[in-house]
Design a protein around this nucleic acid. Sequence first.
DNA 1: CGTTGTTTGGAATGATCGGTCAACACCGGT
DNA 2: ACCGGTGTTGACCGATCATTCCAAACAACG
Lengths: 193, 193
Amino acid sequence: MPWEKQFRTDEVLTKAMQAFWARGYEATSMQDVVASMGINRASIYATFGDKHGLFIKALRAYDERHRAAFLERLRQRHPGKAAIVKAFDEVIASALDGGSRDGCLLVNTALELSPHDAAIADIVSAGLRHVEMFFHDMIKTGQGLGEIPLSVDAERTAQALLGLFIGLRVLTRSRPEKALFTSIARQAEAMLA
Amino acid sequence: MPWEKQFRTDEVLTKAMQAFWARGYEATSMQDVVASMGINRASIYATFGDKHGLFIKALRAYDERHRAAFLERLRQRHPGKAAIVKAFDEVIASALDGGSRDGCLLVNTALELSPHDAAIADIVSAGLRHVEMFFHDMIKTGQGLGEIPLSVDAERTAQALLGLFIGLRVLTRSRPEKALFTSIARQAEAMLA
DNA sequence: CGTTGTTTGGAATGATCGGTCAACACCGGT
DNA sequence: ACCGGTGTTGACCGATCATTCCAAACAACG
């Protein structure tokens, strides 16, 4: 076994993910990716395959390290109603504070590539379904704790919350206005009463 | 003044709009646009300027002919609560019937280009604001007609409806499931009671 | 019927696209 | 010390990108 890799695979994959996250798949050239990742062009192809393969790996990495980690943290720290409210509040806070206008890579990709690429559509669809399941579980948990009335339909409300959450993600990228975000967050909370 | 144009400007612009609508700005090459519009390459540049200029004109055309026309029709035929409900229902119906997965060009563009292109962001932002104003006006109208309780906050609810509406548009492109759409439409209606 | 100004097709522009290659650098085993 | 194989490298590929140019085709006017 001669010689190991000179770079950390997950580290450079994160760089690629950030590049795609900021600009989208089509608008990000391999030249951009090479510059972002900081390793040689051919090393990228050797390690991750072509652009499409690299994007899929980057998308999976986002799904694990951002979407899944984000939801899991909320699930453990504030199980029940607060997890849902916090989900909206934290997205809003990061959009207003840092001014990061990248939104959510899953949502961005849903619009750009899902209709034309089945493999990517599967990853996006599964990611969004996990968000929906998160809302569903937290509603059920909240009902068990007595925070959320039993009259709330967990399935339907989770689906509506998903719609509202995605809408919020789009607006953080196109109309970053605090009043807009506040109205959406309040509506999300109102759905749980 | 010898010779008039051989093509109808607004007619070929519609073709360009449809091309961008289906695939997005970056993924649509000028080659694709030339094929879609059916006129000569040089005529496109002479009439509409470069790709960016053409896209802006196509986006404006969408805003007038689809977004504005759609809302105006609803406003006149079903003023009040029904206009809002119909807005959601018609989007859902067209997504399920024709199976058109193009969504809304304004929303698609909001994600793809708004963060990186100020001129385009302005058009998108204005279009979305008109949708919000439509919801706002129809809530007020519905309250005047006694269809919607006065306890509903017109401004905040209009903003939340915008978020939900955008979420619906994203989901029609990435997870076209009837149950999802129904939950969102019901939630929209519930916000008005 | 020729002049005039526009549209047209097609070819050609340089730049950039995604992707590949042979040569070199490096290490563990012998 | 040397070899087998892997990682790295920068140069390089044809294809496609947006855009421009040119000469032929054309319709209205004098």
